[in-house]
């Protein structure tokens, strides 16, 4: 068992070599903490206890220092989330163009609320701050993919596609 009794997730060799590459970019290893967390989370799905320890070891800091950083950044998740993370922007530009309706629509269709995950683990939903997609408002990101000029219909189509296993 890892940190806080979580299940230990494996870290792939590919990820490990990516870690080495990233660390080499900086004069100080700890600079790599956030990138490593992000790349690690991309592979594992969340920031696992093992990931924290692995990163701490690699950049030569104590686990608590990694832990401090994690808490600061809103994209890092300490617990598993859904395969498709719907991040709906409701900040001003999007709000003015119907973002709240999009958010409410997602809640209805996915049957979950802010920062929740569907029982099948397929979807998570999150209301997020400005995504830098203001001119394509209302917008959201599903994982790293942008979806803009959203309408409830577009959201429905996307959910249907993702449910079928589309990307």
């Amino acid at each position: 068992m890892g940190f806080r009794g979580q299940k230990i997730e494996m870290i792939s060799d590919a990820l490990k070599s990516k870690f080495d590459q990233v660390i080499a970019h900086y004069p100080s290893k700890r600079s790599a903490i956030v990138p490593l967390l992000v790349f690690g989370q991309d592979e594992i799905g969340h920031v696992s206890g093992e990931l924290v320890e692995e990163i701490a070891r690699r950049v030569e800091v104590r686990p608590i220092e990694v832990e401090e950083t994690i808490g600061f950044y809103s994209m890092l998740h300490r617990r598993p989330i859904g395969k498709h993370n719907f991040q709906v922007c409701t900040n001003v530009s999007c709000m003015l163009r119907g973002a709240e309706e999009i958010m409410a629509h997602c809640e209805r269709r996915l049957g979950i609320g802010h920062k929740q995950t569907t029982a099948d683990g397929l979807f998570s939903l999150e209301e997020v701050e400005c995504l830098g997609a203001c001119c394509g408002a209302p917008a959201m990101q599903v994982n790293y993919d942008f979806y803009e000029n959203l309408t409830p219909e577009k959201v429905d189509a996307l959910i249907a596609r993702l449910k079928k296993g589309g990307a």
Binding site: R4, R62, I64, E65, E67, E68, G71, F72
Partner: peptide
Amino acid sequence: VNAYGVAFRAAHSEIIPNRGE
């Protein structure tokens, strides 16, 4: 000893100890 850290941010910022809880 470096046993403390600060976690989270904004009004939720919190002092955390070094071994989980």
